[in-house]
Design a binder for these strands. Structure first.
Length: 264
DNA sequence: TTTAGCTTCCGGATTACATCA
DNA sequence: TGTGATGTAATCCGGAAGCTA
């Protein structure tokens, strides 16, 4: 009996990639650059599993750029900024100019020059709506983005940013959960390893004679690796010389993580 | 058919602001 | 009231993909 046999605990520890969006998948397949292997241990559906996103089509892109130009709800959008002290200093014409600027500002992330970055605080209702939408799909096509923006009185860009940040938070959280799970698995395997080492030592130190069946010529004995029944040689499936080992917890363990073990 | 340029989207990292203890 | 911690909106940057001339 080799050490490998002893160590075959049947416990498995797998690391897979998280299911990713179509674009991510393509991207990572081509270039394994950053987050390499994310452990996914089936702790429950992550957002990435729940939400299979589709790549925006070209028509959608055109739609977005035109929609952004058409957006006119920016008065209320501006009002959603909690810090309005700067705005109060402007007259209405300036406001109109800013609305124009905002409506044309898809590409640039730049804030208006010189002014401090203003930070939007979403209202509870806005947050709830965004969350609801995120549950349905973690990425937005341009039409959905525009609709959501109009519904929430936000700029499409803000909705887009919120979804980007939300995806990042989800991924981070999932990574933390996976890490925790892997840690526990590692501890469990270490314990199992210790136990088996101890068992091995005990077996080695035993000076008992081999069981009767072990004194038979090896060619006459076969053991099914799955059901652990020992059958007589001769290739006759109807052999009556079977020996059951009864319940074997390790075997059941192996079934959990290695269903193929149940091939018998 | 190939290719370069452009646009858009996304993820990751980071910054900056708002809030709270 | 000042301050550090925390959450998160916003920004920056680079890569990928699609479209077009």
């Amino acid at each position: 009996m080799g050490f490998e046999d002893i160590c075959n605990t049947g416990l498995g520890l797998g690391i897979y990639r998280l299911p990713q969006t179509h674009q991510q998948q393509k991207k990572k397949n081509l270039l394994l650059k950053d987050d390499h292997f994310l452990p996914s241990l089936s702790l429950g559906p992550s957002q990435y599993i729940l939400n299979s996103a589709t790549k925006n089509d070209a028509a959608g892109k055109v739609c977005e750029s035109t929609d952004v130009h058409q957006q006119t709800s920016s008065l209320s959008a501006l009002s959603s900024f909690s810090n309005s002290s700067v705005k109060k200093e402007r007259d209405f014409t300036e406001e109109e100019e800013e609305l124009e600027r905002i409506s044309n500002s898809r590409v640039s992330d730049e804030d208006e020059e010189g002014s401090p970055r203003k930070k939007l605080r979403l209202t509870k209702a806005q947050f709830a709506t965004l969350e609801e939408s995120f549950k349905e799909h973690s990425t937005l096509n341009p039409k959905q983005k525009q609709a959501l923006a109009e519904k929430l009185n936000l700029r499409p860009r803000q909705v887009e940013v919120w979804f980007q940040n939300r995806r990042a938070r989800t991924k981070l959280k999932q990574t933390e959960v996976d890490c925790e799970f892997l840690k526990k698995c590692c501890e469990s395997l270490t314990e199992e390893n210790k136990r088996l080492q101890k068992e091995l030592q005990e077996l080695k130190s035993l000076k008992v004679p081999a069981p009767v069946y072990m004194q038979l010529p090896a060619a006459t004995l076969t053991m099914c690796p799955s059901c652990e029944k020992v059958g007589g040689g001769g290739g006759d499936g109807s052999s009556t010389s079977t020996l059951s080992f009864g319940s074997n917890p390790r075997f059941y363990d192996s079934l959990i993580t290695n269903p193929s073990a149940a091939s018998c």
